[in-house]
């Protein structure tokens, strides 16, 4: 009747299997498909990712050179990263942390020209020095 007892007693002495999650986080594995980023400087705005994405979370405005992604619609399949011809898309090994607000990632790039213009303008307001990414809280779910 008490065949579980050895397991129970063993659990009392060996290390716990759970961890205090937000405080203590396990090292991610090397090849994990985590949060999606676009290295906008290398992006050529070809629109391949928009066509290939199975969840249609990416929009590319070829004329205005704006790359938009709805991270909440992204399913982390990595198809866009695999097919990106300019290798500008990449995934970090960390997952996006939970948030209470809906955000849309919108990045403004430069059209590919012979002479590389260093300065880039943000789409609207909040011009960040690095021009990395801009989050519009409560942005319109454009997808």
């Amino acid at each position: 009747m008490f065949r579980m007892t050895p397991n129970i007693v063993r659990n009392l002495v060996v290390r716990k299997s759970t961890r205090m999650y937000p405080v203590e986080v396990r090292e991610p594995f090397a090849q994990v498909r985590g949060e999606l980023f676009n290295d906008i400087e290398r992006c050529i705005f070809c629109g391949t990712c928009e066509v290939k994405c199975p969840s249609q979370c990416i929009q590319v405005d070829k004329k205005a050179c704006i790359w938009t992604c709805d991270p909440f619609a992204c399913v982390f399949c990595g198809v866009c990263v695999d097919t990106c011809p300019a290798k500008s898309l990449y995934q970090k090994t960390k997952y996006r942390s939970p948030t209470g607000e809906r955000i849309i990632i919108s990045q403004q790039g430069q059209p590919r020209k012979k002479d590389k213009a260093k300065d880039r303008a943000g789409e609207s307001g909040t011009p960040k020095g690095s021009g990395e990414e801009k989050a519009d809280p409560g942005g319109d779910p454009a997808t």
Binding site: S17, F29, A30, Q31, V32, V75, F76, C77, G78, V79
Partner: peptide
């Protein structure tokens, strides 16, 4: 959980491994 770790390490995702 260990199997999920193997999935994550070899394919990149835990459950829907694509």
């Amino acid at each position: 959980e260990k199997i999920m770790d193997i999935s994550e390490a070899t394919t990149g995702n835990r459950v829907i491994v694509s």
